[in-house]
Write a protein that binds this DNA or RNA. Structure first.
Lengths: 243, 243
DNA sequence: TATTAGATTTGACGCGCGTCAACAACGGCC
DNA sequence: GGCCGTTGTTGACGCGCGTCAAATCTAATA
């Protein structure tokens, strides 16, 4: 289990340019500036389980995921961890700490083999001077994240585990589909889903079973059949089900 | 208890200009632009307890506190509330929702009589086009908030109430003062401190008494005497005190 | 296909903290 | 100074959820 930091630092030029070209963050940046930007970046390969960033250390820049997935987890010194977000391909993380030159508040660990691109803080700050569009994109990204985090705090603080789980499942279904039954696949192992919901895997297991016994869902492996979305959403609102 | 929304909308020009001139956010904005900006703003007076912004509603712009204090609280439909932040004079809130035109994630309520200035979203977006310095300030503010919120989630999720309280008290003392005893004043009523720490006032009361009995602190009204900062910090780290 | 490390489930048990309720302590106000 | 609404304290009690441990089940490797 190689837990090395900065395992595979490289400079895969095509990869870097592809990533920079595809990130919403840089859509408004002129091709010429993109070239300059890409020249200052580097790429890195990480095996599943490899640590990309440690809480308390200063990130070298903005991380962009090219392939694979990375988890951002808050850690409590000890073993307990709270999964803050899973970063998928084409998404970025560590913006805030990179821009401020501050220690990262979370660990970043690859949960699959992954390739990432690092865009150095200096390059970001330079872009800010030159490209107004980039500043706006960055502001949107940060603002979006702000709302997300607020919601997260709300859920963590004033909802019970059952409500958080119900909300999570409901969000997986998405906005489409009305009342009809449908099945969704958990995008993560149940252990990680539990961490994402701020609970232990044992608790998640029990809550899933309860929802199953109540006829709201049926779980098989990682696929969840939603049988009664109405009651699922009711549970998400923190109601107390009549029993 | 007038709980009116937008009680005292006014256009107190001197107040507005003073606030705009003093906010770090606008330090880099040219005086000329400030005039334009101020022209688009309005001020409002709020009595203690007045609601300035409701969770789920779209804020008209960025709120800046001129006098008094405002609490930002996440709400759970019901009575339970989690105090996210107390906004003091010269600070701002609702940046993220205002910029994105999204519903606010929290309620904003004046906890003292207060005067505020509202800087309309449109004015902010306009400034972004013209003043790079403003964009940078805004990014710094948002990034700062991001780190703050992450820390908040970490504390809420993987620390017990006792550790959060100890951390809070330790933060009140600040970086100065080494081991010597010192006293700090709680900046809020205990009920609000409890909400800020994500617990009920009854629990806070018990935790304070425990810390007192352990000889770590002594509480009298709102002033807290720190008798053993070492042990306070140990408790903040989530250690389990030997007993 | 045998082996094995990791993921998931389930039960027993305990602690933290919320809830309900009664009371004490203040802070205004007339 | 006495009345009263707000705030803080204390006890009893229960539930949610973490912890520990053992039993399965799954998936990757030899």
């Amino acid at each position: 289990m190689s837990n090395g930091v900065n395992n595979g630092v490289q400079r895969d030029r095509p990869l870097i340019e592809g990533v920079v070209a595809n990130l919403p963050l840089f859509w408004s940046v002129s091709p010429a500036q993109r070239q300059v930007l890409a020249a200052g970046c580097w790429s890195l390969s990480a095996a599943r389980g490899a640590s990309l960033l440690q809480a308390g250390s200063r990130p070298p820049g903005l991380f962009a995921v090219a392939y694979g997935a990375v988890k951002l987890a808050l850690r409590n010194g000890g073993a307990a961890e709270r999964l803050l977000r899973v970063v998928a391909a084409r998404q970025t993380f560590a913006e805030a700490s990179a821009l401020l030159g501050r220690p990262a508040p979370y660990d970043a660990v690859a949960i699959t083999d992954a390739k990432l691109v690092v865009i150095p803080s200096a390059a970001l700050l330079g872009l800010l001077e030159r490209e107004t569009g980039f500043a706006k994109s960055l502001i949107n990204t940060l603002a979006e994240g702000h709302l997300q985090l607020c919601a997260e705090i709300g859920a963590a603080t004033l909802q019970r585990g059952a409500a958080r789980l119900a909300g999570y499942l409901d969000a997986l279904v998405g906005n489409g589909a009305g009342d009809a039954e449908c099945t969704v696949e958990l995008p993560l192992s149940k252990t990680l889903v539990a961490a994402r919901l701020g609970m232990k895997k044992e608790t998640l297991s029990r809550l899933l079973r309860q929802l199953g016994e109540a006829g709201v869902i049926a779980v098989s492996r990682r696929s969840v059949l939603i049988r009664d979305r109405g009651r699922l959403q009711a549970a998400a609102s923190g109601h107390r089900s009549a029993d």
